[in-house]
Write a protein that binds this DNA or RNA. Structure first.
Lengths: 217, 217, 217, 217
DNA sequence: CATGAATGAGAATTCATTCAT
DNA sequence: TATGAATGAATTCTCATTCAT
């Protein structure tokens, strides 16, 4: 593999279209996550990316195209992370616990994902619909994983039968997503800091208990 | 009751500051809900309100002030609706079911509430924090209601003890909010229309079962 | 009639939408005439008009809308001028001479008209087509005027019969338009200054002789 | 004749500076003719030429240099075509008819010439003035040709004496140029399609008659 | 000779906000 | 109170031109 630059790693490489594109994408993800699609500024993204506006239009056509690329990338990242979970190697109860924890941790460490998804839903999913055509399947793997765990758990008698894997998957996401996404309004409404370490620990514990309770035979 | 206008030709009253303010607020709610804070346009709001920009600045100072007012109004509305539930008059199981149903129905019929809350969280809750000072308590009533139901349920042996009413309240909101808010990306990812009547019915049924399962002794 | 401003005539009036629109239109006509549609600058037009860009978009929507308005105005001006000619009151030979002279003089004193028409033809007439719907008839009066003169001249035996009034009208415009419009390249190609007073006089004389020669019985 | 490329796969030769220059010039002529100098895009020209922007700057320095080269080429082409007419071998009346027809046909088949000339006049002939120094004489041949025809016609008694050959040459161009160049606005104004085969035929007939009428003794 | 990457100035258009009536 | 006019700062997007390979 060829080294692009002799000097320090973080330095801006020159004349490297792949690297430039990647820097723009990263910068855009941060900007869109922070300010939404309408609030994000092309100028600001170019600056964050240590590039310039013209390159953004070269690689992504326009603001919507850039947002779509960011969204695609975000979904691919979470799917890749999910794939690495290897839940089929765990016992059903452990696997389910692992999945709830993973979801929580992912949202906690990648808060941009939440706001990007919100933005996209504000726009009624138009960008993701376009991306779907170029991305192929998005839904199958996760649902299949959950379905398998449920089946094994039912067979072992540790889960009750008849639970819909899609509904369960949605709820697993819901209990983490809602809490973390709305932590600011939540802190005002409920009167305590939802983002404190203690509060976070309490929530993940509660979520695991909740999901397992839903499955208790 | 005082007639606002002698000529009944137009709904829009002339020189009625209260009515003008109300029309602006309603228009702004629709605009902010549809496009977010950054995406909303003052011009568009003035037009929707059959008023003009100057009035918006007269009554709300600036765009952020208007957003804050909209948010305040939205929270007051949901609180008012909650207050009318009279859950204390129902048996614990029925009360809890009623609460889950109410939450679902409210979000379903007032989708603007979801996007407004999202927008506000994108901005880290700054507007709501300011509003809190002028609005007084926001959190207590709902939590108290849930806490009472839990206590009665535990006393009757129908709910397990030790469930945190705040965590439960959050989860009740979460399972409805997440599904409805993300119905567009969800439809792409899960491969079916999350907003179809059948899908909606299936989801509310699942949510009621889930919450009750969390409380089963 | 109300005076818009007490002070000097050329001063920029305040808060007078008609006047602002008119100033913009005038400025745009000069800019488009000098640089064409693509070469014209909105910034420059706003400055010339002593207004600002926003007003241009308020009154004319966009650059094309502004160009269309300018074109409409230019055609209306020349039509108005034509209408004042009262050729029907002159003898056929005099009327025809008058018409050729008028055309020449109008082009000479309103060179912007030539370049605007050129620009519009570069764009295949799209703006004028749109304007036609809002402007109504454009062609009839001039042709009718020429046709009447021809008829009277034929009746009097001073013009030969069978001359097509439309073709003649076009040629009357052509011999002046081409010379004046292409006076810059012409000066290079033919090796003398086509815009000198003597050259101009020679050309209008030639044109009158030419048109009359076409009609000689 | 030397083979430019061994592999006949693509028309575009590799590493052939003459051919590249020619392709750029051709592409630029089309682009400038369609959009004018200000409206033309360097990017678009490079693409049309199957070359790249760098080459344009290599061969023509900048946009104006390219425009100048295009203009030079266009004038050289029409001069070459004129030279092939051999009007001196024809009788005066036939020679004159031939010249009017040629002018019409050339404009009809090379409409880019009209728009290029217009563009250049919009810019007051600056490019052509520069080109003149490098091109030498441009005007003489055509005028001389017309002058000769006139002289012979006068001698034979078929043309009236005293007609200025330059004015006549200009009018011969004018009656064709104006009609064809302004066919789009003309179609709107006169209410019929000036570019239909019948209309074109009617016009060239009229033009021949007109020019001959001007010369009738 | 050839090419893709990069850039900075600029161009059209938009927007929140203020002013004058 | 109400309204249309006006403004200047952004904002998205474009373009001619240059650089590095």
């Amino acid at each position: 593999m060829v080294r692009k630059s002799i000097s320090a790693e973080k330095e801006k490489p020159v004349r490297d279209s792949e690297a430039t594109r990647a820097r723009i994408l990263k910068a855009a993800k941060a900007e869109f996550a922070k300010l939404g699609l309408a609030g994000a500024r092309i100028d600001s993204i170019a600056e964050r990316a240590q590039s310039n506006k013209r390159m953004i239009y070269e690689y992504f056509d326009n603001k919507d195209g850039l947002f779509q690329a960011v969204l695609e990338d975000a979904y691919q990242n979470i799917r890749n992370a999910e794939r690495k979970l290897k839940l089929q190697e765990l016992e059903p109860l452990q696997a389910m616990t692992r999945l709830v924890s993973f979801t929580w941790d992912y949202y906690l460490k990648n808060p941009h994902f939440l706001t990007l998804v919100n933005s996209e839903n504000l726009y009624k999913g138009v960008h993701l619909k376009k991306a779907r055509d170029t991305m192929g399947e998005m839904h199958a793997p996760m649902i299949q994983m959950v379905s398998d765990i449920l089946d094994r758990g039912v067979a072992q008698g540790v889960f009750k039968p008849g639970v819909d894997p899609i509904q369960l998957t949605i709820s697993i996401a819901a209990v983490s997503y809602y809490y973390l996404n709305n932590r600011f309004t939540g802190s005002v409404i409920y009167g305590f800091d939802l983002a404190s370490p203690e509060a976070l620990q309490a929530r993940i514990d509660f979520n695991i208990q909740s999901i397992l309770a839903m499955l208790r035979p």
